[in-house]
Design a protein around this nucleic acid. Structure first.
Lengths: 190, 190
DNA sequence: TCGTGCTATGCAACTCGTTGCATAGCAAGT
DNA sequence: ACTTGCTATGCAACGAGTTGCATAGCACGA
């Protein structure tokens, strides 16, 4: 399981609370890993027990106190050992593809709406990613930062992962267009 | 959860035993859904109890008997109702992307081997898909079959899903090349 | 002041998925 | 005779992930 490792990476990039991690998992980390706050709190607790992370109580004004987690030596070692361990390519699961093949036994055109909805969701995410890329990697401000610190691995690797997300969304949009063209051939009704 | 629905679709395409389903999930269905035989047997049992599928004992010579499952009316209805239910776009989980971002805190070049392995796996799957496409959809024999039964939804929809698998593998190969180029920039050692 | 909404953490119950193991028939090689 | 390997089904235990709910502080507007 990689949730603990995803958390370690995120905490190495910047220490934070469970709640903050949950929000990161909704955005930037969200393009390659998802997790709810429940999962994150539970795993953080286990990682704390295992000595992978350190906790620090941070009082805040205007909002509840938080527990800020940071990576301990044991956690760094655990991450390093996982990084050197080969893993299998992830298995894919696409409910939508199941639906598309299943549509042959129902009314294929009834799926058009659903496919369009998914296409829109991917379009939205693509635009979100592109905006993030402009802001953090290709925009003028980001370029100035890059000039000050060229070949920064953290930055470059975050960017290449983001490019993966962008490529994925573009691929999905193209494929969903292909699906829509195919569905349209069956005409109205069944 | 869609495993039961994936099984329904597969059984509608052709009735079969749990063992046969497990093998289908290793290949053709494997490009959008994975499942082990344990999962399949357990879910088949539940579906049988719910009256979604019918079972028939099939004696075989030279090998153990099998139970052949086929879709019952209730199962067809369940599939249909699921097809008309909107679902959320699937969340993505890529261990490899976690590793890539994590590599910033270790030796980035140590990942090169791992990435190459994954690239090869995707290359192999792509070739497997392309061979299947040629055999079932674009080859001479397949074309003759298509001429006899044009606009067959089952066939067309299977093909468009396969094209999705092909597009996915091509995207992954392209992205992994991008990753390799990026990793190479950090030179040997850390 | 009452509801709404955001930050922040957590429990309990449940379902889903994986892993290891077990059984059993039969074929084919050594 | 023994082992290996494929078909075929299944149990038991565990771990991962989801869902519903609960609590609590504070801000802000109607």
């Amino acid at each position: 399981m990689a949730l603990e490792h995803a958390i370690l990476v995120s905490l190495l990039e910047r220490p934070g609370s469970g709640y903050e991690l949950a929000r990161r998992f909704e955005r930037s980390i969200g393009y390659f890993w998802t997790a709810t706050h429940q999962q994150i709190y539970r795993v953080l607790k286990r990682m704390e027990n295992d000595g992978w992370v350190d906790v620090r109580d941070v009082p805040q004004q205007g909002r509840p106190d938080k527990k800020e987690y940071s990576v301990a030596d044991l956690g760094r070692a655990a991450l390093s050992s996982w990084l050197h361990d080969p893993i299998e390519p992830d298995s894919v699961r696409h409910d939508l593809a199941v639906k598309i093949r299943g549509a042959a036994f129902d009314d294929p055109t009834a799926l058009i709406h659903e496919v369009k909805r998914h296409r829109q969701a991917h379009q939205d995410r693509l635009e979100h990613y592109l905006a993030g890329e402009e802001r953090d990697f290709t925009g003028p401000e980001a370029n100035a930062a890059a000039a000050r610190a060229p070949l920064d691995p953290e930055r470059e690797l975050q960017h290449v992962v983001l490019r993966g997300g962008i490529a994925y969304e573009r691929m999905m949009i193209g494929w969903l267009d292909d699906v829509l063209t195919t569905l349209a051939r069956f005409g109205p009704g069944r």
